[in-house]
Amino acid sequence: MKKGIILLLMLSIASFCVFTGCSKEQSAGKKIIVATDATWPPMEYVDENKNIVGFDIDLLSAAAKEGGFAVEFQNTAWDGIFAGLAANKYDAVCSSVTITEERKKTMDFTNPYVSIGQTIVVKKELNGMEQLPQFEGKKVGAQIGTTGAIEIAKYKNITLKTYDEIGLAIEDLSKGRIDAVVCDNPIAANYALLNPKYKPVLKIVGTPFTTEEYGIAVRKGNKEVVDMINAGLAKIKAKGIDKELEKKWLR
């Protein structure tokens, strides 16, 4: 019996090695390592098979295919993601990164690939609150370091609660511990309109109140990778692949 277990273990390890070995052999050309915080459905998240999937993932993979380079995604916590980029741990961050002036000071961006806006999610029974200033004196949650958190912080009388993951903020909202959550509209739609658990209790109010563009962040001065990704992005735009992906993930 014991021998059987050991044999099974060794077999699984061996098959795992073979499996990873195969995936490595496939990658031809230059390979870049891309960090993503896979807690942001539908842009990037971990599916039930523990694979990182989502719009960003498909888009960059398609761009890599067209541009003739390979990408490897690495799941990284959001609040240290740019520190890792600066510390040379990976070549790019493709994780729904909004291009902001503040961020441009410390990193370079590729051309924008999709535009979104910040949206407010509240509980279904809350009526008449549609604008962020109306939430003065209330608790509003967002993921730490996101543009949503930065927007809330502009209002001094709103108590900003920052979460490590947007999913935890949504969970707290559904439990009534906070009054609203601010996040990008595709994510808000995914939780409040599609998610079977949150669909009955949450809703989106108002229209997106900011206009932002996602770009892929690259270490300051790393022009090679920026050009490589930009070339790939241009090719998939010309072929209309990006529109197909938007239809697949964002509708």
Partner: peptide, 21 residues
């Protein structure tokens, strides 16, 4: 980690937007 804004979380909030890790 429970979104309690203690010393560490305040620090993380600052670092995540200002990038002075």
């Amino acid at each position: 980690i429970l979104a309690v804004s203690d010393l560490l979380r305040r620090g993380r909030e600052y670092a995540s937007t200002a990038f002075y890790y």
